[in-house]
Design a protein around this nucleic acid. Structure first.
Lengths: 247, 247
DNA sequence: ATGACAAAAAATGAATGCAAAATAGTTGGC
DNA sequence: GCCAACTATTTTGCATTCATTTTTTGTCAT
């Protein structure tokens, strides 16, 4: 059965939709990137089993590099590896979600604190522009645009912290809750939107004054509120959630 | 100097000094734990190349599970994998160190904030006991005891945050700077010791009052001061530098 | 008909084998 | 005598193969 995978099947460079713009030499690295995206984007239902063989055929590689990639994804917290029972997409309990949001809040809070030490006026101006852009989306009730602008603002703050280690960790955690995060934003009632806008104004204000502790507080609270909204949302519509809390 | 290392060398179960108390079924998991400890404890000089073959013989396993473990350690940031050029123990630049300390500061700061929401009086009492124990070590100039008590206090705060995700991340980052962290504590001049004690008192005070934002600030500043001390220390005595490659 | 047991099938974990790349060692040219 | 190019050895990356473990399926007994 094995050799039925001809070379012409799916050569490595194919990277469907991925674009070959990412500089990754080794096969396992390539696989890692593709698999991570594949999982993060939600192509596999939560808790679903991920058969190695099937993925191998899909990616056109042997099991060795795939298993290496799986180990890394497990270390990142995206999937879990049950001994002798294969890989499953990690299912986030409500508790897990709450924890992740809090950690994200802590990281952004830290980013804000550090940003106050290093941010330039130009960077603040950039964030202001994003803020007004977001405000425009808010007025037009453009949910998607608002979401993107919002994300870019938070990214800009993390960038301004000038801490690659922080940014890497932030990106990692963000990946874990990406799906939920997005759908959680849809959960925003009008009222919460308004609150969020006011919070963002406060963020900008503190940033302009380089008030580190204050900004840290505001950012944490801002993310905390998002967390609440997200969890309420999932409680109401437990789409991918495990109905029975396991702990 | 070919391999010529007979099979009778070191069977897997040997786990010298490790003790088999850790519940890890799979071989690669066992390997991962042992390798991580091995690296964290500084058995391999920074920046040194780590040939797979050699590690395999040392651990008595084949390359496959070892390579899986290496990939995970690379994802954790302990080592780095150069394409086609093997694994090296990651060498932390001063910048990396500064970044890591800041992230640790952010995580502890977050831990303190969260702890204020959930900590019990008993837990605070525990921390108080640790504090007085630490004070005793301080008075007796017992550096090692002080270091351990100090570490336990910070751990207790992280535990009190009741956030497993945070704890995992904290442990991971702590592992990356463990060596430096320890030697950095030796760097403490008398004066810094006194300061640290006062900071710890402030931490306890804020914790008793459940003053989340305040505690968050104090913890961040406390770690920031440690960071400064550590980096100054390394600047004066760059011990871990790659004086002589392993050849 | 249902449950338990057993054998077959499939999947996972680890080892080995092979091709390509890198490093070391050597030779040849200037 | 020194540097460059070429060859040999080592090392890495991936595929394949082997050995367990799990899961499924089929049979039998109650």
């Amino acid at each position: 059965m094995k050799s039925t995978i001809p070379d012409d099947g799916v050569p490595i460079g194919q990277t469907a939709g991925n674009g070959s713009d990412r500089p990754e030499a080794s096969l396992h690295g390539e696989i890692l990137l593709r698999l991570r995206d594949y999982v993060v984007e939600g192509n596999i239902p939560e808790g679903a089993r991920v058969p190695e063989r099937q993925l191998c055929e899909m990616l056109g590689i042997s099991r060795t590099p795939l298993r290496e990639a799986l180990k890394v994804l497990a270390a990142e917290g995206l999937i879990e590896l049950l001994p002798n029972r294969g890989a499953r997409v990690r299912q986030l309990s409500q508790r897990d979600l709450a924890e992740l949001f809090d950690v994200m809040a802590g990281l952004e809070s830290l980013a804000g604190r550090l940003a106050c030490e290093a941010i330039t006026d130009d960077e603040i101006a950039d964030i202001e522009r994003l803020h007004y852009e977001m405000y425009g989306h808010y007025l037009h009730r453009d949910m998607h645009g608002y979401f993107l602008a919002n994300q870019r603002i938070h990214e800009a703050i993390v960038d301004a912290a000038r801490n690659e280690t922080l940014k890497t960790a932030y990106t990692n955690f963000a990946g874990r809750i990406r799906r939920v995060r997005y759908s959680a934003n849809f959960a925003r009632k009008r009222q919460r939107w308004g609150e969020a806008m006011r919070e963002h104004e406060a963020i900008l204000d503190a940033l302009r004054r380089r008030a580190a502790s204050e900004l840290s507080d505001i950012l944490f609270q801002h993310l905390r509120n998002k967390r609440t909204a997200a969890i309420e949302h999932l409680t109401e519509a437990p789409e991918g959630a495990p109905a029975s809390p396991e702990g």
